[in-house]
Design a binder for these strands. Structure first.
Length: 271
DNA sequence: CAATCGTCCTGCGGGC
DNA sequence: TGCCCGCAGGACGATT
């Protein structure tokens, strides 16, 4: 459920916490989620690509972490990490991997449902993987003309299903796809080919605005996952996801699209 | 070739 | 009260 704004928020925190530090030893608790061996190396950069966290190492390798549904980090330093070994007892059982850094701090990657993954790749393989993902919706190159061109590739797809396809466009998940479509006034079942030029313009604007606004609020903290700490406040601004009525007080409809729950307003979103 | 389906996983809540 | 079942869904591989 962490999508672009949540991952962006996490990456900004990680940049302060781990960038420039060296990985000492590593403790792996869920081997099947960790692919490749993590080297003892300097962390030279932390970036985001789509919903992935990309950690660049001095060894020129990359650690690519995907959070899946419930992946999250816990960082502990100083007294706190000595006292608790870095983690609350009930969090300990969700540890996937712990990174012990050269300044004595510990970064834990935890995941309840084990949909996440950690992979270590060579520079070449990392670039290949990252290039396969669609364009970043918040990049300066993602202009309205670029979006129009992109839409030609999936003319026959349902607009919501296309927004969720990471190879088509990067970083949008089930929550933001629904929020973006509500803000753009477009029924999620619409086929891309049916969108008018005005609607494409609205959709492009809604993507940028919704994602930027969510980042300003440090993402969305979803109620169900109370045990996952998150400081995000965008849930206050959700207009359809998990709600019964839209901001205009119209009752919402819930359907399944691409076997994903989808809320929308039949009155505000043109079919 | 693209769209769809099954799979992984665990906590939670609804229903009885 | 407690148990069981279904739901939540990101991403990938298999299938049609």
């Amino acid at each position: 459920m962490p999508e672009l704004p949540e991952v962006e928020t996490i990456v900004r925190q990680l940049q302060k916490q781990i960038k420039g530090k060296k990985i000492g030893h590593v403790r792996i608790r869920v081997p099947k989620l960790v692919h490749g061996s993590i080297p003892q190396s300097l962390i030279t950069d932390v970036r985001r690509r789509a919903k992935a966290i990309v950690i660049k190492l001095g060894s020129k390798q990359y650690i690519i972490i995907r959070l899946g549904m419930t992946g999250h980090f816990h960082y502990a330093k100083g007294k706190k990490q000595q006292k608790e070994k870095g983690l609350e007892p009930q969090e300990q059982k969700y540890i996937v991997v712990q990174f012990f850094l050269n300044d004595g701090s510990i970064l834990s990657f935890n995941d309840i449902r084990k949909f996440g993954s950690v992979q270590v790749l060579s520079s070449e393989k990392a670039q290949t993987l990252l290039k396969k993902m669609g364009p970043e919706p918040l990049s300066s190159g993602f202009t309205l003309p670029a979006f129009r061109t992109l839409l030609q590739q999936k003319r026959n797809a349902h607009v919501k299903v296309a927004l969720l396809d990471q190879h088509f466009i990067a970083g949008i998940g089930n929550i933001y796809a629904q929020e973006i479509l509500y803000r753009a006034g477009i029924d999620p079942r619409r086929k891309i080919v049916s969108l008018s030029d005005t609607e494409i313009r609205k959709l492009h604007k809604a993507m940028k605005n919704t994602l930027n606004q969510a980042i300003r609020h440090h993402g969305t903290t979803v109620q169900d996952y109370v045990h996952i700490e998150g400081s995000g406040g965008f849930q206050r601004y959700l207009q359809v996801y998990g709600r019964e009525k839209c901001p205009q007080k119209h009752p919402l409809t819930k359907i399944y699209l691409g076997s994903r729950g989808t809320y929308f307003c039949p009155k505000c979103q043109k079919s």
